[in-house]
Design a protein around this nucleic acid. Structure first.
Lengths: 150, 150
DNA sequence: TAATGTTTTGCAACGATGTTGCAAATTCAA
DNA sequence: TTGAATTTGCAACATCGTTGCAAAACATTA
């Protein structure tokens, strides 16, 4: 049974392999490289960004399928954006398979287009009208990020 | 100068024409029919829904352009969704050209897929980390709507 | 109401995005 | 190292959205 505590190791490669193993995924080059990308950049990525960053190393389809798989396993989550492009970001360790705990606020910079997961800010409780039942809340703030604001 | 108070009239046709005129748009069949659709259904619509509802009456391109125009004029606004499909909904009268006041919460039903504008519930203020400046907040709640919950 | 100029529409063609089936290659386990 | 299972790349396709341009619809003036 998975989800042991996972310390951040100096050798990233090993850590990435562990993440894949823990999720019963075979360790392939594309999965490793894409996971690495997420860890290295730290913020959200789109399919096309990943395609660019990895060059022509992997097929478009492989990237799509890898992202799908990662979402299913709870390794990454999708972020709804105002311009309706699909973004993905690493889940915190707490995320369990299929059932994401990504109840944090997302921030998209209008200028540099970077998307941040504001892990420390959680989505507020919304009082819905009678008869409505809430299962998920997505909150996306856009504006100027701290890098562009200087 | 426009934006006079606009009462809800028994003759919808006239009202729709007025909305178009007020926004310096010529009154065409497609614009009228599409605006009518929004008023009749009351909730959010996607491009494909509009295409279905209007049959093959209008070209795909015309629908795209009509929606674009309506967004620019502040007649409708877009709604970001978790599955990244593009949805549009009527703005309240307060919306002014280019500058939307759509600071209300949206609700999407997981079951019937209907999207509601919860006009009375406005988006909360989020305290961002130092250096971040907020210009817009989008909040989408999903779950079960009052029609499906019975 | 008819003639005029302007705006809008429909068509064709295109690019980007995302999906599926299948054979070849890779990974895993013994 | 070998065989079974999984994953990848390719081809083909469907959907979504955009652009240029000629024809049609609309608004305006007389």
């Amino acid at each position: 049974m998975p989800t042991a505590f996972l310390p951040i190791r100096p050798d990233m490669k090993a850590t990435i392999a562990e993440i894949l193993k823990r999720n019963q995924l075979s360790i392939t080059e594309s999965r490793t490289k894409i996971l690495e990308l997420f860890q290295d950049t730290g913020n959200a990525l789109s399919h096309s960004m990943i395609e660019q960053e990895t060059g022509k190393e992997f097929d478009r389809v492989t990237i799509y399928r890898t992202l799908q798989t990662f979402v299913e396993k709870g390794i990454i989550h999708t972020i709804p954006t105002a311009d309706n492009s699909v973004l993905y970001a690493l889940c915190k360790e707490a995320c369990t398979q299929g059932h994401h705990h990504d109840n944090h606020v997302h921030f998209i910079c209008d200028q540099c287009n970077t998307t941040y997961c504001l892990d420390n800010i959680s989505t507020p409780d919304i009082k819905l009208p009678k008869g409505f039942i809430q299962t998920q809340t997505d909150l996306v703030v856009s504006g100027i990020c701290k890098n562009c604001n200087s």
